[in-house]
């Protein structure tokens, strides 16, 4: 007999070992998320996927599904809180979308559009962060990093290279690369590595792919991130 959880009133089946996020995705339900990517071990840092389970808030991407869970997901209060987290991510970095090659294909943007973000609301930090163009094929622009550690996980768990990591802590947290020089060009990263492909934002970009698709015709210009990530259609 299959086990079930209830998400926003819908009965959703799950298998032992699945998280709430896994179960929701399998059922075609969208829970906003940024640091989660089903190809990798759950991480739980962005907190966008927070849902309310039996009265308590938990990150759905790390919380195992269990019989008897009453999950609230698509409700105004949670979406407002998710919007606030998204705005925090915008102001803590330097997100100048008009100048960003990822614009239109960026998950951070996609989530912000989905949640109806009209402004970043909070006061900007305008931190001084380093851009690393030393690698022949890959650009690392730390201004756009949201510390999701997808590149860290991909490099460690898939590529077996450990190219990326985090250092410092709190608001000073910083993405570092595995080289004494501190430069990406001195690491073993290759453009074909998984780590070079997984960044949800424009922090890690494969070079010389600029403007292949014009602004206005990109993924989230036409389709909501919900439709894209659940395979639903927008029209």
């Amino acid at each position: 007999m299959s086990k079930n959880i209830i998400i926003d009133g819908l009965t959703v089946p799950f298998q032992e070992g699945q998280t709430i996020m896994d179960a929701a995705m399998a059922a075609g339900l969208y829970i906003p998320h940024l640091c989660h990517n089903p190809e990798f071990k759950p991480h739980g840092s962005c907190k966008l996927c927070t849902v309310n389970v039996n009265g308590r808030n938990v990150a759905s991407c790390t919380m195992p599904a269990a019989e008897g869970q009453q999950v609230l997901n698509d409700i105004a209060e949670l979406n407002a809180e998710r919007l606030a987290l998204t705005q925090m991510l915008f102001v803590e970095g330097n997100h100048l979308c008009p100048a960003c090659e990822k614009s239109g294909n960026c998950n951070l943007q996609g989530v912000a559009y989905y949640l109806g973000m009209m402004s970043p609301h909070y006061n900007h930090f305008y931190p001084a962060r380093e851009v690393d163009a030393s690698h022949p094929d890959i650009l690392l622009d730390r201004n756009r990093c949201i510390y999701c550690e997808l590149c860290v996980r991909a490099s460690r768990d898939v590529d077996g290279k450990n190219v990326f990591g985090l250092t410092d802590r709190g608001i000073m947290t910083r993405l570092i690369v595995n080289a004494t020089s501190g430069l990406l060009g001195d690491t073993s990263l290759a453009a074909t590595d998984k780590a070079a492909q997984v960044c949800p934002t424009g922090a890690l970009l494969v070079k010389r792919k600029g403007f292949a698709v014009p602004i206005g015709s990109r993924i989230f210009d036409r389709h909501t991130i919900k439709d894209v990530q659940t395979g639903g259609s927008h029209e």
């Binding site: 100048l96 970043p120 962060r129």
Partner: peptide, 18 residues
């Protein structure tokens, strides 16, 4: 009403902030 990226985030002129 704040109109446009520059009014809302600083926009391209904010590239000088660093």
């Amino acid at each position: 009403v704040a109109v446009g990226a520059c009014a809302i985030t600083g926009g391209l002129p904010a590239m000088r902030n660093n």
